[in-house]
């Protein structure tokens, strides 16, 4: 993982973030606004968008996994690990 770039505005950028643009393709309707091919009796329009949910999940999950190890402050300390334990306990 390359160290995060820092700009004067404090915005941190990772190329993985671009994946978040993929689900936005659902906003372009003409290519999926049709009835065939059908799947278990559902027109394409319906099952394609339901499948879009899975694509959205994959994209956000990958971005989460790939940007996870970045330090979130200039001096993170060991606190991050303790957090993860807390998270586990919350389950």
């Amino acid at each position: 993982m390359a160290p995060p770039k820092k700009s004067a505005s404090g915005i941190r950028w990772s190329p993985w973030n671009l994946l978040l643009l993929v689900p936005l393709l659902l906003l372009i309707t003409p290519y999926y606004n049709r009835s065939g091919p059908e799947f278990i009796g559902m027109p394409f329009f319906y099952w394609f968008q339901l499948a879009g949910v899975a694509v959205g999940v994959i994209c956000t999950s990958v971005v989460f996994a790939m940007t996870k190890d970045k330090p979130t402050t200039p001096a993170p300390g060991p606190a991050g690990d303790v957090d993860d334990l807390d998270e586990g306990a919350a389950r």
Binding site: L20, P23, L24, Q49, V53, V55, G56, T60
Partner: peptide, 17 residues
């Protein structure tokens, strides 16, 4: 009426950051 589906699909990638 199905607009609610793409709405909630694009929602999370948009608000993530």
């Amino acid at each position: 009426g199905l607009y609610a589906l793409p709405y909630t699909v694009v929602l999370y990638p948009i608000i993530f950051m």
